[in-house]
């Protein structure tokens, strides 16, 4: 129950942060820096292999755009 409350509080925190910032509006011509490939809000394509091994070698998975199933990691 304590752990569930931790998740709930974290979720609430993110909802509050999201609500407070979601009014920002940057024009298209102002997005030069935002559109830089290094600013992408996803992991690099080349990191897919290490993410797969982390999925198998650690108890956690998900939340990174990587796969959440589809392999046993038996090795």
């Amino acid at each position: 129950m304590k752990k569930f409350n931790q998740v709930k509080n974290l979720l609430l925190f993110f909802v509050l942060v999201n609500s407070s910032v979601s009014c920002a509006s940057i024009k298209e011509y102002e997005k030069v820096n935002i559109n830089d490939p290094d600013m992408e809000l996803s992991q690099r394509q080349i990191c897919r292999f290490e993410t797969n091994f982390q999925l198998y070698r650690e108890g956690s998975s998900g939340g990174n755009g990587g796969k959440v199933g589809g392999g046993c990691g038996c090795n």
Binding site: F14, V17, N18, V21, S22, I26, V32, G63, V68, G69
Partner: peptide
């Protein structure tokens, strides 16, 4: 059998000309 069912929610926001962030939650 070993089945996996997942739902993912992602919210992303440009904060300034130089800053952006994303929030995510999965239920697996």
């Amino acid at each position: 059998s070993r089945n996996t069912y997942s739902i993912s929610f992602l919210f992303s926001q440009i904060l300034t000309k130089n800053t952006q962030f994303a929030f995510f939650i999965d239920l697996i």
